[in-house]
Simulated scan of single mutants.
Amino acid sequence: MRELVVLGTASQVPTRTRNHNGYLLRWDGEGLLFDPGEGTQRQMIHAGVAASQITRICLTHVHGDHCYGLPGVLSRMALDKVPHPVHLHYPASGEEVVRALVSVASPGIDLRLHPHGGFAYGGVAHAGPNHRAAEPIAPGLEVRPLNHRIEAYGYRLMEPDGRTFLRERLAAAGITGPDIGRLHREGGLDGVRLEDVSVPRPGQRFAFIMDTAPCEGAEELAEGADLLVTECTFSDDDAELASQFRHLTAGQAGDLAASGGAGTLVLTHFSSRYGDVAPLAEQARSRSAGARVLAAMDLDRIQFPPRRVHPS
């Protein structure tokens, strides 16, 4: 199952209908919790999300609305005796804050800390002189630097590209049963090539972009995203405020979707000044080049879009 569970959609100030940030991505066997703000533990209960489902926690930065829920979530995981390791990814510059938050959580889980950062470009952890050759921070999981008032990073989860078999071609070639797996592993079988009986299957991509002004890192994260989650703190009418505090307007979020060719754009992290966010969704939609645009509400469950069809 691949699904995004929205736990909170407010920015700095929560409202009666919007909790602080929190997003759980169910991705096959993993559960990635992004930016757990204050109240995330309670929102998990409302959403029917069990603490045992969380395998990784990813912080974009250490402003409170993106991380103050961390101790509660970790404490709940300890209470529930979660048996598996939990990996915590965060900017290295936030080490002091993260360790303080972890220190007040209940002990009892196998928590593994993974600070990242220290690179100018390339989006991978602990980049050295040859940063383009470095490994992602976890299998399929990458980061890119954003442009906020403190060091911040966005995340991207990518499935490897694969192949989709065509039944009629397999039948015509007389390949059935275990021989299909062998053909896939070896690339050929009895004169039949893998490409003769299959077509490319682009791997799915998820991108998560929070507090940032428009920047190259955000554009790279959005590239080819099937599901793009991005902050939408301000209306286009408040572009000066967005620039001052280094946030995105709704239209700029739409621009990201358009430039990256995103399939579905999920807007969130709304300022409390907007009781109705429908106009923000319209602003984003007008500049999204046809991407599906959703203005997230707390406790929404968003299914991953169907796989894209390869142009060939």
Rank of each mutant, 00 (worst) to 15 (best):
M1H: 11
R2F: 08
L7W: 07
L7M: 06
T9R: 13
R16P: 01
T17N: 00
N19P: 00
D35I: 06
G39W: 05
M44H: 01
I45W: 05
V49Q: 02
V62H: 05
G64A: 13
R76F: 03
R76G: 09
A78Y: 08
D80R: 08
D80C: 05
V82Q: 10
P83M: 04
H87P: 03
L88F: 08
H89V: 03
G94P: 10
V97D: 14
L101Q: 08
S103F: 07
S106C: 06
R112N: 04
H114R: 15
H116R: 14
G123P: 09
V124K: 14
A127Q: 08
A134F: 12
A134Y: 06
P139V: 11
L146T: 02
Y153T: 00
G154C: 11
G154Y: 12
G154F: 10
M158F: 00
G174I: 04
I175L: 06
G177A: 14
F206R: 02
M210F: 11
E216G: 01
E220F: 11
L221E: 09
E223C: 09
S235Q: 14
Q252V: 06
T264K: 14
Y274K: 03
G275T: 04
L294H: 13
A296D: 01
M297R: 14
Q303D: 08
P306R: 01
R307K: 07
V309D: 13
H310F: 15
S312A: 14
